[in-house]
Design a binder for these strands. Structure first.
Lengths: 197, 197
DNA sequence: TAATTTATGGACAGGTCACTACAGAAAGGA
DNA sequence: TCCTTTCTGTAGTGACCTGTCCATAAATTA
């Protein structure tokens, strides 16, 4: 089943990465499809033919972000030996990522869709849902740590997950405000003192 | 020197409050001046005559927010007997404010100007500067606590201020995501465990 | 070669954006 | 009473927005 019709003249994955970088740096509504097509080197028609509409493109761009940029921090949750190590690794690697000068600062899921007009409320809700999902994954990992005895029985996995995600969100804002890498790690140093014993 | 010319037919302060609520709820770029004038019950011309341009209106709206909504949490810094009490009061009152159902959730300074087009970068920088200023005030209060002996000499006021502000920023995102008041206070419970002894 | 399928760029619709020109209205001052 | 000052709404301005139409180009299939 070879592909019929005229073949696409641009690299779809590369275009997606361009969209991710733009949305990540400036947010969903501050990036126009006209501008995106321009920096992709293609026409509006090609963009719409390849990705549907702007919202679909954004969702794909966020998915791309999750696979390429967010994957490392997320994998810490499943590969670390202890829950404590998982949390600290997640925060440390986020601190490193958020201050990578070759990429936009902070986390795309936190910063790219914080506000929107009424017509784009779905985009906001989409990002919010992703944040909830990540937090639920952390909460589950902490709950496992309680049953395994790594965390004391009185520890509240839900509250701890919300707390560490709160710090994580804060790192994004701080990174956007220009705080440097050691500054973010100093915050993580303090945040880890909360770990129950 | 009585006021010359035709008197203004609307309440400037009330209009400013309307603008604050709109910008706070949906962000700078997602609120149009057309819509604002409409909900203020005045024409575009009246709005521009009273407030200048959109950026000036936003700055005034943020100042209004600072005086009416942010003042209580900020006053905790100067009126509390101890620095610890100051920090905890600031976080608790923010948690209460951020989940007040009669107002937009979260903090306007964190949420209303997180992203912007190139032409509105000044608005972003404005909000960023306000965050830095508040953090500097907290840092100064913590430094005082070190010299007064409330905090141990090895405590780092700058890092602590950055940490507590990180939690504060996180509370805004959590509030926007729908977390309820007890949920935010549970985060504050944990955050306060970092306090050096 | 002919038919089909898909991608392409250019031009353009229809809407909204921030902002303003203008003429008239409502006040104070002379 | 008339002038000056300021605010008022109407009706625009040009620029930009998302999304589409259309003729054409480039590939596979028959």
């Amino acid at each position: 089943m070879a592909t019929r019709g005229r073949p696409r003249a641009f690299d779809r994955d590369h275009a997606l990465r361009t969209a991710m970088l733009a949305f990540w740096a400036r947010g969903y509504e501050s990036v126009s499809t006209t501008e995106l097509a321009g920096s992709m080197g293609i026409s509006q028609s090609s963009l719409y033919a390849a990705f549907g509409d702007k919202q679909s493109l954004f969702r794909e761009a966020v998915a791309y972000y999750g696979e390429h940029e967010g994957a490392i921090a997320r994998r810490a949750l499943t590969t670390s030996d202890t829950a404590r190590q998982a949390v600290e690794t997640m925060l440390r690697q986020s601190a490193d990522r958020f201050t990578d000068r070759s990429l936009p600062s902070g986390c795309m899921v936190v910063l790219a869709a914080t506000n929107a007009t009424a017509g784009n409320a779905a985009v906001q809700e989409f990002a919010s849902e992703l944040r909830r999902r990540d937090e639920a994954a952390l909460s589950a990992r902490l709950a496992r740590a309680v049953t395994e005895g790594e965390l004391p029985g009185h520890a509240d996995p839900g509250a701890l997950a919300a707390y560490y995600h709160s710090v994580l969100y804060g790192l994004s804002i701080h990174a956007r405000d220009g705080r440097d890498r050691p500054g973010l790690h100093a915050i993580v140093d303090l945040a880890m003192k909360v770990w129950p014993t």
